[in-house]
Amino acid sequence: MKQKMWKWVSLLPLSLLLLLSGCSENMLVLQPKGPVAKTQYDLIVWSVGFMLFIIVVVFVLFAVVLIRYREKPERADYEPPEEEGNTLLEIIWTVIPIIIVTALAIPTVKATFALEKPVKKEVKPLTIQVTAANWKWIFSYPEQNIETVNYVNIPEDVPVKFQLTSVGPINSFWVPQLGGQKYAMDGMNTELILQADEPGSYMGRSANFSGKEFAHMEFEVLAQTKDDFAKWVKEVQQTAPKLSKKKYETILQPGIVGRMTFSNTHLAWIDHTKQNRHYMNSDDGINR
């Protein structure tokens, strides 16, 4: 009876796995659409292999030991031996984890270093300044001199340098299908390089709690063909309204706003990565 229960318990995670295969198309992390996410996906798959191996070994040993050495009426007079340990065995199960950890550490370190640089060295990366504010994302294209709120368009196959900062609490910039996240922090300038391999719409969101409406800090990353992107930039430059200081102040007010597009950027008058230290006391009227 108990034995059956135990078997059933050990099968529980597996059965859930089967159940889950139904919703795997929603698992964005496992649907990489860019080289960064792909690198991370490969690392994840590589590690999952080892982890499943460990789980299988431990679970099998566990089940065998429990079944064989449980108290049974027929071995009522059995008295377990006095054993202190076994040096050889203990060395074996110290060395095997060391090997596994090494096998995981090497690709981890490689990938961690690789992700700091663009994959495509021959293509000039596009720089986008990202400002997290309560509770919206502001994207500034310094070279194109345009600005968007809560959505960002990028060209496919071009590395994009997202330079992250915040005018409030720490947020984390995460686009699961393009790659892992990085924090956007007040007075700091962190850099996250992502790239999309194909046109498409990718969900992005803040992954670090930042207060009341944090759950709504979603944005869309729209990857376009290079031509479409150039066309979009041109259109924005020609048709979108200008962002005024006053308008920018209202955007920064705590709250949720919809999508917005402007044909200039706030970088012209304020650089949050530098000015955060001082502007609390300055009279430029920025009110968060």
Binding site: L43, S47, T112, L115, Q181
Partner: peptide, 13 residues
């Protein structure tokens, strides 16, 4: 798995 920095960027939080 979470300890693997590059992969952690995808798991974090």
């Amino acid at each position: 798995m979470l300890a693997m920095a590059a992969a952690d960027y995808q798991y974090h939080n």
